[in-house]
Design a protein around this nucleic acid. Structure first.
Length: 239
DNA sequence: TTCGGGATTATCT
DNA sequence: GATAATCCCGAAC
């Protein structure tokens, strides 16, 4: 473990396999950059949608003034964050949009990672997402670049709150991705895998109320990825 | 292309 | 009663 959580000693997993429960047994600050590149799987009536996570935000525990669990606030809404890592925490924001989070850490230590942007893996996945976004989804960022938008595209609402992301029978789960950009495994058999895209760390979005926690670089995204919601050219730094 | 304001309701004070 | 981990559309430049 180094001073830069998640940068070192991150385990690699077999592409396409479910991420094991142990993947979630770390702090949100460690998990947030590690979640980049992993694959979110959503089962809908129309079919299975797979998409790669390309932007995340860490909400780390009771001392983080940006977190719903700040000060240990344990309510019906935040209850799932107080459970074991591996569950989905989903809430309604501004009366009309849902946000998806991945709970991390041990029980009674409320931490979560907000999923802010995803990209479809295949044209088939994109078509299923586009069907829910309609004509609004002109550019990639309009399809699923933003926490509310990706929940719309993936038909995610509070009925999925508490879904266990490590279980194969869950309608919402997480599989190991593959390193490198693109929409297919980068390495040919016996070939060398492409290096993963560069990661940028930048301040989180729309949490001015979080005071001294508002400017911490706890948002992570792939540089140059067209699905990322906000490119921070001023404060974004290589991770 | 950028900017400003309205939408809409669960949640907490 | 006020607020919110946001999005969308129309107006203006």
């Amino acid at each position: 473990m180094t001073g830069q959580p998640g940068k070192s000693d991150s385990a690699s997993f077999q592409s396409g396999e479910l991420l094991p429960l142990s993947f979630y047994a770390v702090s949100a600050l460690e998990a947030a950059p590690r979640l980049l590149g992993q694959v979110l799987v959503r089962e809908t009536a129309e079919g299975t949608i797979r998409c790669r996570i390309v932007e995340t935000e860490s909400y780390g525990g009771i001392e983080d003034k940006g977190s719903h669990a700040y000060g240990g606030r344990r309510t019906a809404r935040t209850e799932i964050m107080f459970g074991e890592g591996g569950a989905a925490y989903i809430y309604l924001i501004y009366g009309m949009y849902h946000c998806l989070n991945v709970v991390t850490g041990p029980p009674d230590d409320p931490q979560a990672v907000l999923i802010r942007a995803v990209e479809p893996l295949t044209p088939g996945d994109e078509a299923l997402m586009r069907a829910r976004r309609g004509s609004r989804a002109r550019r990639p960022v309009d399809l699923s670049g933003g926490p509310g938008k990706l929940c719309r595209a993936l038909e995610i609402d509070k009925s999925l709150n508490g879904a266990l992301l490590h279980r194969s029978d869950s309608p919402l789960r997480l599989e190991a991705g593959w390193p490198g950009p693109g929409r297919a495994p980068a390495a040919a058999p016996g070939g060398e895998a492409a290096p993963p895209p560069a990661v940028i760390a930048a301040p989180r979005i729309n949490i001015a109320y979080a005071a001294e926690y508002a400017d911490l670089p706890w948002r992570f995204y792939y540089r140059d990825n067209p699905y990322v919601s906000v490119i921070d050219k001023e404060r974004g730094v290589p991770y």
